[in-house]
């Protein structure tokens, strides 16, 4: 589904990614772990199409298409979803309206019929149970005045409503208490399917207790330094990132 080949990128002439390789197939869950400044967020933002990065080399294929040439909304309509580390507030726009606009924009792009407000409301109500989200949050402006946990739940709600093919979750676990972490994990696990790939970007092993990855990669200084199964995460938790460098 996703092939990242020798990807190098920089911001303001500072090299962040330095020849990154990664392949993700449908049905797989990959965890990318790494210390601060290793390039985790740059990778997720670059894949989603955020402006301001300079591509120095390499390429990214998503279902065979040259991903980096596409506008963010084109990537979204191909089925790429990014759960933001810091979800953005949009004052005056209700959460439900926002989600419906996005949902119908994607359907329209795919040549499917748009859903009306009533049908959409039902769909969202059903899905919001999964992330135990209070219905009042649907009518409030997007992320405005939401707690940290509510924002992350909202990201997961958007993800399970929009049903993307590839989900990239950028530090969705950061800032969550244990109850919120469980709820968010439940949402992520519900999204697992043989047609869908998930990339979990995280600092810590604790999310992986609830969402078991098939593969774990260590990102360090702009490169994947080590890859392995879920046991790699435990090793990291025990020994820290320094261990990878020494080994």
């Amino acid at each position: 589904m996703l092939q990242i080949k020798n990807l190098s990128a920089s911001i303001d002439n500072k090299k962040i990614l330095k020849g990154l390789n990664l392949e993700v197939k449908a049905g797989e869950v990959h965890a990318i772990m790494g210390p601060n400044g290793s390039g985790k967020s740059t990778l997720s933002q670059l894949l989603a199409g955020k402006d301001g990065y300079t591509l120095d080399g390499g390429e990214v294929l998503f279902e065979g298409k040259d991903l980096l040439r596409l506008a963010p909304e084109e990537r979204a309509s191909l089925g790429l979803f990014l759960a933001f580390q810091y979800p953005v507030e949009i004052p005056g726009v209700s959460n439900l309206y926002f989600l419906k606009s996005a949902y119908n924009a994607l359907r329209k792009k795919r040549g499917e019929e748009e859903l009306d407000a009533v049908d959409f409301m039902e769909l969202v109500k059903e899905k919001s149970k999964l992330v135990e989200m209070n219905e009042t949050l649907l009518t409030r402006p997007v992320n405005e005045g939401f707690s940290g946990g509510e924002k992350k739940r909202n990201e997961i709600l958007q993800m399970i409503v929009l049903e993307p093919k590839l989900c990239i979750l950028d530090e969705t676990d950061s800032g969550l208490d244990i109850d919120a972490l469980k709820v968010v994990s439940k949402g992520i696990n519900a999204a697992r399917s043989k047609d869908r790939a998930i990339i979990l970007i995280t600092h810590y092993q604790r999310l992986l207790n609830y969402c078991e990855p098939d593969f774990v990669h260590v990102l360090y200084n702009g490169k994947i330094l080590k890859s392995g199964g879920k046991e790699l995460a435990f090793e990291l938790e025990k020994h820290g990132y320094g261990w990878i460098l020494e080994s």
Partner: peptide
């Protein structure tokens, strides 16, 4: 950031601007 957020969810640049301005 607002524009990117909207576009990542599938809205065109123009729809994103309209959405944000109408909210305003």
């Amino acid at each position: 950031d607002q524009l990117f957020y909207c576009r990542q969810r599938g809205l065109s640049q123009e729809d994103a601007v309209n959405l944000i301005v109408n909210g305003f």
